[in-house]
Design a binder for these strands. Sequence first.
DNA 1: AAGGTGACCAAGG
DNA 2: TCCTTGGCCACCT
Length: 110
Amino acid sequence: MSSKLFERIYKVVSSIPEGKVATYGQVAALAGHPGAARVVGWALHSAPEPLALPWHRVISATGKSSLPERSARQLQRALLEQEGVRFDRQGRVDLATFQWQGHEPAPKAS
DNA sequence: AAGGTGACCAAGG
DNA sequence: TCCTTGGCCACCT
């Protein structure tokens, strides 16, 4: 079994709602470990299949997929588009529109 | 025990 | 807007 941190990460990822995305850094922060964005990548890379996590809803802070293999990136994009997430011409997601606002403070209000 | 690696990120040029 | 650089943190030699 992996550390508590991994378990927290998996829990956060599994709570990302359909049609929304979260960044690695965001997941790390919500898991109680801000700054450990790379660990989130590692955790997902080594995530056991049985967990059936919505890993495709986790993308980089630039709005792009960070997956190393092209085929995997295409799959991620297909899964997201299927949920209503739209990509621009450069294959990026508009975070201002689709980023999950879990417990994060609202963008602004006044 | 020390150094390398990776599904990262923000700031500068 | 793209590329580079330094800093991050846990896992694996």
